[in-house]
């Protein structure tokens, strides 16, 4: 527990930063990034470079912005009210993420419950089948009546996905142990179990990449494999992206732990990341059940 913590007590006043360049830098960065992708998609040669520049700016902005926040936190400028704002903000952010995934799960359930059966001639949409897709039968998995992307095989739930489930569940346990160790002031256990958590996270990502290679090269299961491929890759892909972000955040707070940041009572960043990690965990469980298993 290093610098500045005892120099002055956490203020009674709600900390409002005087001014900050990072929001405008962030806005310019996001703008550059999406303009880059838009150019890229419109086949402008500079597109990928503009996109890369934008991404680099986004990373720079995050490093500097969060750097400011960490410095302020470590010099005890934040009182309990500020801490509460961060907690609430994180929870609402996770809620917005839940709703983002809900859109894609909604697409999955709609395809399985409505569009595929209707195309197969069930229910009120029987004429679509009779007039357009006569030979198509309701089945799941399906790449649709036009066999979009050609025949494919699916990844069985109780192979790699089950192992990945075990990995994520285990990482949920290790981060909880790390949290208890932090609260008990046991820094050694904290550092070890936090490291275990992000290593498990990165292992998950490696295995997921392995699974994607297998799907693309051997199973002919691609993003273009009809609505099955669409929902499979968009759901697992966005989940994988969130695991990557979560693992990076875990790594960052691990380095902070090594530097002696956080106290048994004052460690919002740790808890925020832990909540986020549990959130990606839960999303995975739902994915495992509805995308891989059932």
């Amino acid at each position: 527990m290093a610098h500045a913590q005892t120099s002055h007590a956490p203020s009674d006043k709600y900390y409002v930063p005087h001014s900050s360049p990072w929001p405008i830098v962030g806005s310019v960065s996001l703008f550059t990034t999406v303009v880059g992708v838009a150019l890229w998609l419109n086949h402008v040669n500079a597109g990928p470079w503009v996109f890369a520049l934008g991404l680099a700016m986004v990373v720079f902005m995050f490093v500097r912005w969060f750097g400011d926040v960490i410095r302020e936190s470590e010099s005890r400028l934040y009182n309990e009210a500020v801490d509460r704002s961060f907690r609430m903000g994180m929870m609402w952010f996770i809620f917005s993420e839940v709703m983002f995934f809900a859109a894609f799960f909604g697409a999955l359930f709609y395809a399985r419950q409505f569009s595929i059966p209707w195309l197969g001639g069930e229910g009120v949409k029987v004429f679509t089948n009779l007039l357009l897709w006569k030979d198509y039968e309701n089945a799941w998995p399906s790449n649709g009546p036009a066999d979009v992307g050609g025949d494919f095989e699916v990844i069985p739930a109780f192979g790699l996905p089950a192992i990945n489930t075990a990995i994520l569940l285990l990482s949920g346990v290790t981060i909880t142990i790390a949290h208890h160790a932090l609260k008990a002031g046991n820094r050694k256990v904290l550092n070890i179990f936090l490291a275990a958590t992000f290593l498990l996270g990165f292992l998950f990502i490696v295995l997921q990449a392995e699974e994607y290679m297998h799907a693309y090269h051997e199973l002919n299961l691609t993003l273009g494999s009809g609505v099955y491929g669409s929902t499979f890759f968009m759901l697992t892909g966005f989940h994988g992206f969130h695991v990557t972000v979560g693992a990076i955040m875990l790594t960052v707070i691990w380095f902070r732990c090594l530097k002696g940041h956080f106290t048994p009572t004052h460690h919002f960043a740790f808890e925020g990341v832990a909540w986020y990690w549990h959130f990606v965990d839960v999303v995975w469980l739902i994915l495992f059940v509805f995308v891989y298993w059932l």
């Binding site: 036009a146 979009v148 273009g224 669409s230």
Partner: peptide
């Protein structure tokens, strides 16, 4: 976020071969 998800599906339908909104692909 639901709107963001919906327009993301439009984007992938247009450029990346998904068929969320195309009957031929289910």
């Amino acid at each position: 976020p639901v709107l963001a998800g919906a327009v993301t599906m439009l984007l992938t339908d247009h450029y990346f071969g998904t068929t969320f909104f195309e009957a031929a692909g289910g």
